[in-house]
Each structure stands twice: as structure tokens, then as C-alpha cells.
Nucleic acid binder design. Sequence first.
DNA 1: ATACGCCCCTGGTGGC
DNA 2: TGCCACCAGGGGCGTA
Length: 275
Amino acid sequence: MPELPEVETVRLALVPAMEGRRIASARIGRPDLRWPLAPDLASRLAGRRVLDVRRRGKYLLVALEDGQTVLLHLGMSGSVRLHDASPVPRKHDHVILEITDANGGSPGWLVFNDPRRFGWMDIYDGDTHPLLEGMGPEPLGNGFSAPFLEGALAGRNGPVKNALLNQRIVAGIGNIYACEALFESGISPRRRARSVRGVRAERLAESVRSVLARAIEKGGTSLRDHVQPGGEIGYFAQSLKVYGRAGDSCLKCGGEIRHIVQSARSSFFCPACQR
DNA sequence: ATACGCCCCTGGTGGC
DNA sequence: TGCCACCAGGGGCGTA
């Protein structure tokens, strides 16, 4: 489910709900997510004030007052919901946090729900976590540019689509936005990564940034289960130009959008417009 | 180092 | 209505 724009949308909702407030208590549903939750997770969270909520790629990072950081990945089907009243338990609620102000007042609840359990949560001390090391630059940050992208793709024989999904090359892009960025830049998902150079690299870098930024503005893409923490859906699905449009006509040339499978992921593209 | 296939898991959908 | 195959916003791991 969630790619960078959806995770960023979640982050924007969590900032006012968490920053400067306190995790009064934590309750764990089932701990066997992608990886087992730390046995002492609940006790390490309880009572801690939240300094800030950041994002790295598709990860949410919640910094606590005592130097610990909570790492949250939503996997394919994860969501975070905020509630004013104690929430009615739902299937697949895995972590429930009660959030109060510094004096214990105005309580709220945060619920991490994930049916498929491809997501996970961890807590660590210090600067970084093994899962964050080696991750590529933020596509909306200063470390990402056409020259960077060209360099990162150089020597790679696999399809450029696969390279865009590789979090070690650039962080946060998933299947939807990889397809969309390739369509907008007129590059075939099957093109060898190393052959994306010069003008093509410039167009691709610009399309990646542009499509992600526009998706954030629309609150992300809600296809099936993605919702924002307040329950709102994201509206970027209306702006998708190729993803999920197999058999429909290309918005640029009127030709037929095709569907292929690359590394067991669906790719959608226009064979005429994308070379 | 890179590339690929396999696996983790639940739920919704469409065909018969 | 029921059953079943197939598909889904991800990514780690083992193997060539």
C-alpha cells in the first residue's frame, strides 16, 4: 500500500497529534509482524514524550525524549488511525498507543492496524537502525538529482522499473509511482537502467519528484485500504495516468495501455509513448 | 556487487 | 451461494 506520499500524509497527521505529547500507555495486539516486536516495546514506549515525527523513505521515525526512536513501516496493508475516544478494537490492530498532553489530559489514541502483517515496528537507541543503512537519498531532498540518478543507474543491467523500486538506489518509490514517473518521462519500464542517461535521466528525475510532490498534495493514493489517520482517503488515484489502466487508452497518444509483469510486480505503460 | 525467484500474510474480486 | 484461483501501495533473504 503505502509509498512515500502515503507515508508522508500519515506523518503530517501525526505531527500535531504526537509532537510534544506523551505516550501514556502502549498495548500490543499480536507481536508476530514481519519481524517479532521487541518484547519490551510497550514498556519502553510508556511514559515517553514525543520530540518529533519524521520520515525516511517509507519509514516513519518517532523520536522520543530519552534518545530512543520508534521505527514504523506500513508494509503493504498497514494503516495508522487516530481516535479521540478509546477505539473499538478491530481485527488486525497490532499496536495501540494512548497519547496525552504532558499532564495526562486530553487523551487520544493511535492504532496501527495491518491485516497482512508485512509491516513492522521497532525501537532503537542512538542514531540509526540497520534497516535504514544503505538506503538511497530522499527523492524530494537535495541528494537526489539527474546526475545522481544517472550515476546510480550506471552499470545496472536490469530494467529501470526495478531500479526505481530498489530502496538502496532511491528511497520511497513504490509500484504506483514508479509506473507513473516512467510514463511521464516517456521511458519504458523495460529499458535497461544503465541506458537512462542525459536527457532521459533529467526527465526521469524531474518526473519522480513531480509525481511524488503532487501525490502528497492530494493526500496520497487510496486504492483499497489506504486511509489517512483521520479516516480520510487520498485523492491522487484520480490523477493516475497509467497505473491500473491496462486496456484503456493512453492519455497522450490514444494508444492502448499495456500490462506486463516485472519481478512479480505489475507494470503499466504505453508502448508508443515510452521508449 | 547484482539480479532474480521465493517467501511472508490476509482479504477482496471475478470466474465457474 | 460456494469454492477457488488470482491479485494487491513491500521487501528481506538465499542462490547463482
